[in-house]
Computed example of a mutant assay.
Amino acid sequence: MKDWRTIRLTPEATIRDAMRAIDEGATGIALVCGADDTLLGTVSDGDVRRGLLADREMADPVTTVANPRPRTAPVGADRLEMLDLMRAHGVTLLPLVDGTGRVRGVQTLSRLLERPHFDNPVFIMAGGFGTRLHPLTADTPKPMLKVGDKPMLEHLVRRFVRHGFTNLYISTHYLPEKIRDHFGDGSDFGVRITYVHEETPLGTGGALGLLPPDIAKLPLLMINGDVLTNVDFTRLLRHHEQQQFAATMCVREYEYQVPYGVVQSDNDVVTGMTEKPVHRYHVNTGIYVLDPEIVAGVVPGTRIDMPTLLERVADDGGKVGIYSSFDYWLDIGRIDDYERAQQDIGILGMT
């Protein structure tokens, strides 16, 4: 709201005052605050109705019907966290409070549901040969293989659009015309697409050096074009910015169970035994966020893979971090991965 004070009430206000504030604010709720804007409670249409049914009078203090323990969110709370909170508790407005409990604003469900917009560039790597998926890739670049009724690359593009990212760059190498013919300039998909072409493969990071110099000087999201995922790119970007990383690698947990009992020993003496132990590792998902200085530092025409690039960033003192994702993710590199994707796509609701 432009001015949340239109729905602010003092503890001395009456139920009638609350009804006026609710009506004028058109939010279905009013805030009861102390002199220093400390939140004392909220009052909704339902609170007023229940109070009147319990024989309260219109001239009674609003505190007699107010909810003294309302749901709130901290100032600067993540958009999706607020949406989750609203949906979980059936509220359409959240007071935003600081560390001392003072109201600093409000957030409404209608505003949160508006599609966000980010100027950050998105770089999708779509130049691979897909040799392990042959013969499917004999005349189709791997990212253009259909999963469900759309190419896997289109699933990615549409997901970025849903999250408010419309400034896309796509790297091509193998059968680039197949990708360009399908997406054009991106206008049919609600995005602007700029293509960069690798005359020779430059590794998983080398194509960064081909990006135009006028690219937005904002953190860049980078992803392999053969990934099927519902990773929340908004949360990923927010994490990168909040942690002040120079580069962020999106990882997920990979679990491997040894199918046998494992024996530890020292000089042929058993020191311990573990039955079928489980080992857990963080694995790279091929999704990154990179500060603009890193992108600008990749020399055009240089072959480099992303792990090497990130190691150089760390060696130069840059802060390289991780974002642990528990969202669906599938790297479609083999035939059985592709078959699994066909089964998963309907369950995920991404068709």
Results as ranks from 00 to 15, higher is better:
H117S: 13
D291K: 10
L136Q: 09
L112H: 07
M306D: 10
A247D: 03
Y256A: 10
F183Y: 13
L211C: 09
Q244R: 15
D336G: 05
R5L: 06
R162T: 11
G148D: 05
T63V: 08
L31C: 09
D139N: 08
D45V: 12
D119V: 13
E12W: 03
L348T: 03
G286P: 02
E241D: 11
Q264P: 02
A59Q: 14
L31P: 02
E199L: 11
D185H: 02
R69T: 12
L290F: 06
A314Q: 13
D214S: 08
T285G: 04
N120C: 10
H117P: 01
V295W: 02
L310D: 01
H155C: 11
P277N: 05
V298H: 03
W329Y: 15
L218W: 00
G164Q: 09
L208A: 04
D119P: 07
D185V: 12
T140D: 00
T10P: 10
V62M: 01
L218Q: 12
M350W: 08
Q243K: 13
R280D: 02
H155D: 11
V106L: 08
T271E: 08
T63F: 00
P143V: 04
G317D: 09
E311F: 11
L112I: 04
I29V: 15
K276T: 12
V43P: 00
A126P: 01
D84A: 14
R235M: 11
N267C: 11
D327M: 04
L96I: 11
P201W: 00
L309H: 02
P70E: 07
D149T: 11
P74H: 10
L208V: 04
D266Q: 14
K2N: 12
H117N: 12
K150I: 08
A138D: 15
H89S: 12
L221Y: 09
H89Y: 15
V196W: 07
D305C: 11
P212F: 06
V157Y: 02
T6C: 09
V298S: 04
I322Y: 15
I294W: 03
D119L: 15
T92K: 10
G51P: 01
V258I: 14
E12K: 13
L40E: 14
D149I: 03
P277F: 07
L9R: 03
I7F: 06
K2F: 08
R159P: 05
S44W: 04
M86A: 05
G286H: 05
V147K: 07
V65D: 02
P277I: 05
A341M: 06
Q343F: 09
Y328W: 12
A126E: 00
T200E: 15
S171W: 01
E241K: 15
K319G: 08
G301Y: 01
K150L: 15
E177K: 06
G349Y: 00
R235A: 14
A66G: 00
F118K: 09
D214K: 09
A73V: 14
E81T: 12
I193E: 06
P300K: 06
G301A: 01
F165M: 10
R159F: 08
S265R: 08
P70K: 10
